[in-house]
């Protein structure tokens, strides 16, 4: 129990400690640190509205963070949550604006979310196939596929999926019924992402498939000798991760923007890696981790708004906090390893 507390304490300590260092950075950049940090904290969670913003920003981070955690746990270095998010958003937009009736009821939400998940999953599986069949490193393929997805979106909203008036590079608005129902602007995606975390945790820890994925993640060669296929399971992991990231895309689309734009996700896909690492790849820990990153992003906006800190400075602060907290968490990870007896105590 005490060990458990220590494990939990380290990421929190890391997060808090790095905020302390941010004070120094702000001073160095010539801004009043206390006012800025106050704006950061208040903007992140100082009012119901701030909480709404934080939750909204945490939701895609939670889903993509889960995608990264899931694939990393399976030994697949998926850097492509970004591209999978776009692929999901693209598929969801296509289904919502081209297939579904514009006057449909709330049931439209289901096909849109499913399309997002499937789009992302297909995109993830593409990298999986390249890896399994052609031996292409998933690190390379997922990074490159990010660019493919981004350009596909750019093409789609200037071409086949552009709005009917063809005035701007954006898609038609989603049918009203396809928008996620919201309670005081907290859309259905928020609870959905939380449920996804529970499902992923259950999948990894409690199912036979999750068991196999974990085995492959720990030691692909050993798993192969135990009768598991690292290639097939790796593809499955990428598809599942892609599905989660694609769902994030659909949720952003149907919960927030209502139209497909370029730059729908300016980095949640990459930030997701930090989210997952801070959570030490534990699905349930991704929840607080995503919340932390979401709060940070939201607070950074408030720093700009209220304390007039230029966005470049808030980005430096954000970057330092992320770097330190992730580095801290990983550092603790290796410390924890050193404590156990080393392998083959001969």
């Amino acid at each position: 129990m005490k060990e458990r507390l220590r494990v939990l304490a380290s990421p929190i300590a890391a997060a808090l400690a790095s905020i302390g260092i941010a004070v120094g950075v702000l001073l160095a950049l010539g801004h009043a640190p206390l006012g800025a940090l106050e704006a950061l904290v208040r903007g992140a969670g100082g009012s119901p509205a701030a909480w709404t913003g934080t939750l909204q920003k945490s939701t895609p981070l939670l889903l993509t963070g889960l995608a990264v955690a899931l694939s990393f746990r399976c030994g697949v270095w998926n850097i492509g949550a970004e591209g999978q998010l776009y692929a999901g958003a693209l598929a969801a937009t296509f289904v919502a604006t081209r297939w579904l009736p514009a006057d449909g009821g709330a049931w439209l939400v289901a096909p849109v979310l499913v399309a997002g998940a499937l789009g992302g999953a297909g995109f993830g599986a593409l990298a999986g196939w390249l890896r399994a069949a052609r031996g292409v490193s998933e690190v390379i393929s997922t990074i490159l596929l990010n660019f493919v997805a981004i350009q596909l979106v750019a093409y789609a909203i200037q071409g086949p999926l552009q709005e009917a008036p063809r005035a701007y590079p954006q898609s038609d608005p989603l049918p009203h019924g396809a928008m996620l129902p919201a309670l005081d602007r907290l859309h259905l995606g928020v609870p959905l992402a939380l449920i996804a975390a529970l499902v992923v945790a259950f999948l990894i820890d409690r199912t036979a498939v999750g068991f196999r994925l974990r085995a492959v993640g720990h030691a692909p060669e050993a798993a192969r000798f135990a009768g598991l296929s690292p290639e097939r399971l790796g593809t499955l992991a990428l598809a599942l991760a892609g599905g989660l990231a694609g769902l994030a895309g659909a949720v952003e689309l149907a919960g927030m923007t209502g139209r497909l734009y370029e730059g729908l996700s300016p980095g949640p896909g990459y930030t997701a890696i930090a989210v997952a690492l801070l959570a030490r790849l534990a699905p349930l820990a991704v929840i607080p981790s995503a919340l932390f990153f979401g709060a940070l992003a939201n607070g950074a906006l408030a720093m700009q708004r209220e304390a007039a800190i230029p966005s470049v400075a808030t980005q430096v602060v954000q970057g330092i906090v992320i770097l330190l907290s992730v580095g801290f968490a990983l550092g603790r990870l290796s410390l924890a390893r050193e404590r156990v007896p080393s392998e083959g105590e001969a």
Partner: peptide
């Protein structure tokens, strides 16, 4: 160990189970 299908990082219980993880 690895050629023997022992998966480092997994527990004794899990390693004893790993080869039956696909036959239900």
């Amino acid at each position: 160990r690895e050629r023997g299908g022992l998966v480092p990082g997994m527990s004794v219980a899990e390693n004893l189970a790993v080869k039956s993880s696909y036959d239900g």
